[in-house]
Amino acid sequence: MNETPTPAAGQIWQDNDKRGYGRSVRIVEIDGAHAVVELVTPRGAGHDGAKPGRRTRIRLDRFRPISTGYRYVGEADR
C-alpha cells in the first residue's frame, strides 16, 4: 500500500475533485500552512482555464487522498 508523504517542494500532486479532473500541480515551496504550487496540467481536455506555470496557494491539509483533496503522484523531474 502506498503511503501519502508529507507535502514538500518538488513533488507532483493530482487533484481528486471531479471538477478538477486531470489537474496536476508541482509544489514550489511550503509557506506556513500553505503550499505554493505551479500548475503542471490544467483540468480536463479542452478547458480554457488556467495555463501551465500559473502559481497559487493550497492549504496543506488538502494534500491527502480524499474526494476534495490531492493524491501524490511523484517527484518532479529536475
Results as ranks from 00 to 15, higher is better:
I12G: 03
A35C: 09
G74C: 02
N2I: 12
M1V: 09
R19I: 00
E3H: 11
I30K: 03
E29H: 02
D61P: 02
F63A: 04
R71C: 06
R64Y: 00
S67Y: 09
F63H: 05
D31I: 12
D15F: 01
W13H: 06
A50S: 15
G32P: 04
R19A: 08
A76Y: 11
R78F: 07
D77N: 08
K18A: 02
G32H: 08
L60H: 06
N16C: 15
K51Y: 01
A9P: 10
I30E: 01
Q11W: 06
T6P: 00
H34G: 00
R19F: 07
I66C: 08
I66L: 12
F63V: 08
L60R: 11
P65M: 04
G49C: 10
E75R: 13
T68V: 13
I12L: 15
K51D: 01
R55L: 13
Q14P: 00
S24F: 02
Q11C: 04
I66V: 15
L39V: 07
Y72Q: 03
D48M: 11
K51C: 03
R26M: 15
M1F: 09
V40G: 02
T6M: 10
A33D: 14
N2D: 09
P7C: 05
R54N: 07
A50D: 09
D61K: 09
K18I: 02
H34V: 13
T56E: 14
G44E: 03
Q14L: 02
P52D: 06
D48V: 03
R57L: 11
V73G: 01
L39G: 07
I58H: 14
L39T: 04
V37S: 11
R71D: 13
Y70L: 15
V36A: 08
R26N: 10
R23S: 07
G49F: 09
H34Y: 14
R43V: 01
E29I: 01
R43F: 00
S24L: 01
M1E: 09
R23F: 01
P52K: 05
P65N: 15
P7V: 05
L60G: 09
T4N: 10
R71V: 05
T68I: 12
R26V: 12
L60N: 11
D77P: 10
S67A: 15
I58C: 04
G74W: 04
Y21P: 00
L39K: 07
A8N: 08
Q14N: 03
V40R: 13
A33H: 06
A45S: 04
G22H: 07
V25W: 02
G44K: 11
E3G: 07
R54G: 10
K18Y: 03
R78G: 08
A9S: 15
R23G: 00
L39C: 03
A76H: 07
G20N: 15
I66G: 08
G69K: 12
G49V: 05
R59D: 08
G20A: 14
R26L: 05
A76P: 01
R78C: 04
Y21M: 05
G32Q: 11
I58D: 04
P7A: 10
E75C: 02
A76N: 02
K18F: 01
G44A: 12
